[in-house]
Simulated scan of single mutants.
Amino acid sequence: METRIEHVEHFTVKGYEMNGSVSEIPKLWDKLNGIIKENGAKPEDSFGVTLGMENGNFHYLAGIDAQLAEGFTDAKELTIPEGKFIVAKVEGGVEAIPAAFDALLRNPGVKLRHSYGFERYIHPIGSDGYETEVWVAIE
């Protein structure tokens, strides 16, 4: 798996969260995508942020850049702190996301930093599909 290191300024994601089974995540994305369409937002990327995992429950937020999410009601804002991340493109669709995260977390060449890990879905306006990347905070 090819990786790259990115340094990002802090940015804010606005969207919807859930705390439950991983099987509930697609419904959360359906909700977000419906609200994006209703509000006429035009994001070129979206984010799935892991807020925590405990006892089989997954705390997760699906969102877009907060500046593009005006009019989103009952949405939560979350700031991703500035810092370095190791990034990898996910090959094989959403089913391959856990394996991609696992590979980055076990990469012996980096020291992990306490922060959010997230998926970034890149879908430029006018494109038919999207690319998926996983981002893990590092020192």
Rank of each mutant, 00 (worst) to 15 (best):
D102S: 15
E70K: 00
H10S: 11
M1G: 14
F85V: 04
W29A: 08
L28R: 07
S21N: 13
M18W: 07
G20S: 11
G93D: 08
Y16D: 14
G56W: 10
W135E: 07
L78Y: 07
G20M: 14
S21R: 09
Y121R: 06
G48Y: 11
L68P: 03
G109R: 01
M53N: 10
V136Q: 01
V134D: 03
G52A: 14
I5W: 03
E6F: 13
F118A: 02
G56D: 09
D128T: 10
N55S: 12
L28Q: 08
E2W: 00
A100P: 04
D128S: 12
A66R: 03
A103C: 10
P81G: 11
A96H: 06
G92H: 09
V8C: 04
A69N: 01
H10D: 11
I5Y: 06
Y130W: 09
E91P: 00
A41S: 15
K37R: 13
V8Q: 10
D102G: 14
V8G: 03
G109N: 15
F47K: 01
E131I: 07
P124E: 08
K27H: 14
R4H: 01
I5A: 02
S23M: 07
P124A: 13
D65A: 06
L61F: 10
V8A: 08
G126R: 01
E2L: 09
F118I: 02
G63Q: 07
R106Y: 12
